[in-house]
Design a protein around this nucleic acid. Sequence first.
DNA 1: GTAACTTTGACAATGCGTTGTCAAATATGA
DNA 2: TCATATTTGACAACGCATTGTCAAAGTTAC
Lengths: 155, 155
Amino acid sequence: MSELHSEYTKEGQSIHALVVELTFTFFKLRSSGDSQYQKYGLSSGRMALMRSLFSGGPQTVSAIAASRPVARQGIQRMVNAMVKDDLLLLAENPRHKRAKLVELSAAGNALYRQVLKEEIEFMNTLSEGMSSGSINECRNLLVQLRDKLALDDST
Amino acid sequence: MSELHSEYTKEGQSIHALVVELTFTFFKLRSSGDSQYQKYGLSSGRMALMRSLFSGGPQTVSAIAASRPVARQGIQRMVNAMVKDDLLLLAENPRHKRAKLVELSAAGNALYRQVLKEEIEFMNTLSEGMSSGSINECRNLLVQLRDKLALDDST
DNA sequence: GTAACTTTGACAATGCGTTGTCAAATATGA
DNA sequence: TCATATTTGACAACGCATTGTCAAAGTTAC
């Protein structure tokens, strides 16, 4: 601890500690997810993509990218690879000749549902002993934090 | 929403929502941090490394890597680059001929303190309107979550 | 002391994200 | 309509993390 830390307000200090913990928890969560996914040849990125298609229906690459903090070209590359793996299909888009609609193939849909099922069980296990009230309060605070960040920069 | 979601317990559903929000908040936080750091030629990774050295004192590359969820060779590469940029120094290690002690140079220390100062102000701003009690509760819940993850896998 | 094991830094390959460029397709507006 | 601007996918280059391999340095056990 340096003397600089005395410039923190009490709340500022708490937020800093929260940010540090959030970072550790995020990495832990992602590596835990990846180790669950890898036995199906999936990754966190591929799962997130399938999740978007499963809940949002067929969409263009641009639309998928716009709904998440990832670059359009990253999604494009991922989609191309997953089409090759027969997890996704490209359907004609009546509104745009080049921008095809990306959708889950039958195999992709089945795989996603399988993994989602495991994921739900995992979340249920993780939440044992916690109250949904305190979990929701925590989430609300993160939303609040993120909203403040959105004001701060134009990312 | 698919029929699969009915397999969630109430708490499981909440945890899932929390995990989604946590992910968004993490990315927002990191990009916000990076845009603050870049005017000093730094990145989140470099800042984290300097933070370790500032608070933990001179350490070997291996020790730094062991204290965070990053690979040893990633730290090694970063250290080599930052030594070239005169932000870090390699001091002789009496206990090991090859494993030098990494420490902040005078320039690195000054730069870190400058950025830290801005960061503290930023955290103070972010926390305005929040109670340190609710922030700490949120952090405690994340700690609890991370502990459960640690049990689950051996990452 | 010495043989076997582990830790460490250099080097290389790879994975997966980013950005930039370009041409085709589309949208906009005078 | 037609000129201009934007969106889109392919391609390339790069950034920054990972893993694996190897030889030098250090540790441990006998």
